[in-house]
Simulated assay, not measured.
Amino acid sequence: MTAIVEKSSARSRTRAAGPAGGKRAKSPYPHWFYLPAAIVYGVLFVIPTVTSFYFSLTRWNMFSSKFIGFENYVTFFKEPALVSGLTHTIIYAVVTSGLKVVLGLGLAVLLTSQIIGRGYLRSVVFFPVLVSTIGVGLTFTILMDPEDGLINQSLALIGIQGPGWLTDPSYALLSVALVDVWKGVGLATLIYIAGIVSIPQEYFEAARVDGASAWQNFRSIVLPLARPATFTVILLSLIGGLRSFDLIWAMTRGGPGFTSDVIASVIYKQYQAGFYGLSTAGNVVLFLLVTAIIFPLSRFLNSKEVDL
């Protein structure tokens, strides 16, 4: 069974190399065909990015700006609330992406098996993805109310004293992270389902002939051949977690205190307070954080995909 997977990987590498010994085929389109896309990319990404870098070095408002160098960055990293927001962002991204990978893979394996109502269950799992993030946040804020919330009332029926999910500093950030997982795991499941159903059935038939168990099928066939789907889920979940704002703002507004503040909510609070230069510096820090994590991780995962 392992030999079958290895042969498939060898054929994939041969196809990837191509008939020209690894040389990429020349594009049939003239270079000026790329000009419209380059203009849109430059206007919507390059120019705003460069402008943000410049204004992060200034003290500015709607009418004037004064160049102050790296003073905004020094202030950013001296403020405990800002640094804790950066830490919370990383924790939030790791927790949500890890749970989405594990739960998404488990649900995908279940929903690609021969179970009754498989199509309906797929729709149910994916439905939260379609719901407004603000709507989900407001709904769970009510459900997690420590006094009148349905969750704590249900726990009280079986003799369990429910915590203050959103009011206890120890639970607030992780509570929002769990809601984020509930809302986003459907997309991870969908990606995994696409990866699993694309696996040729010959592998499973050969495993069945060899007398492989369900666990052996999962470990030796599904896990290796669904690796591209895993990489996609990891990258999308990490990007979403690092940039998270709307769900946290709807549920806790960074509270209680600053215990569930992430860098995006800190940036928003600084902007509300009129510290435009400091909030712009925070945006640059967030941009560099996402780039520093996602770019090398993407290169690493892609290299692992080729060497599968």
Rank of each mutant, 00 (worst) to 15 (best):
Y171R: 09
S65Q: 12
S123N: 13
A10Q: 15
A212E: 01
A214Y: 03
S279P: 05
M144W: 03
P169R: 12
D261K: 06
S65C: 01
D148N: 14
I191G: 04
L86H: 04
I116A: 14
V266F: 06
R118P: 09
A188R: 05
R11C: 05
A264I: 00
K66V: 08
K183W: 00
F55D: 02
A81D: 13
L157C: 10
S170Q: 13
A226S: 15
L155F: 09
R11V: 14
F45V: 15
D180H: 10
G274I: 00
F53L: 13
L110M: 14
G164L: 10
W215L: 13
T14E: 15
I267T: 11
Y192C: 05
A3G: 04
T232I: 09
V5N: 03
T87P: 02
Q114E: 09
G277E: 05
D145H: 13
L103A: 09
A226Y: 08
A81M: 11
L82Q: 12
S279K: 01
N283T: 12
S303Q: 15
L57A: 09
L223T: 12
A156V: 08
P30C: 04
D246P: 04
M62Q: 13
Y34T: 12
Y73G: 01
S132K: 00
T189C: 11
D180G: 08
A16Y: 08
L57D: 06
V306S: 14
K269P: 02
R219M: 01
F218M: 14
W215P: 01
S260P: 05
R11I: 12
R11F: 06
A250F: 04
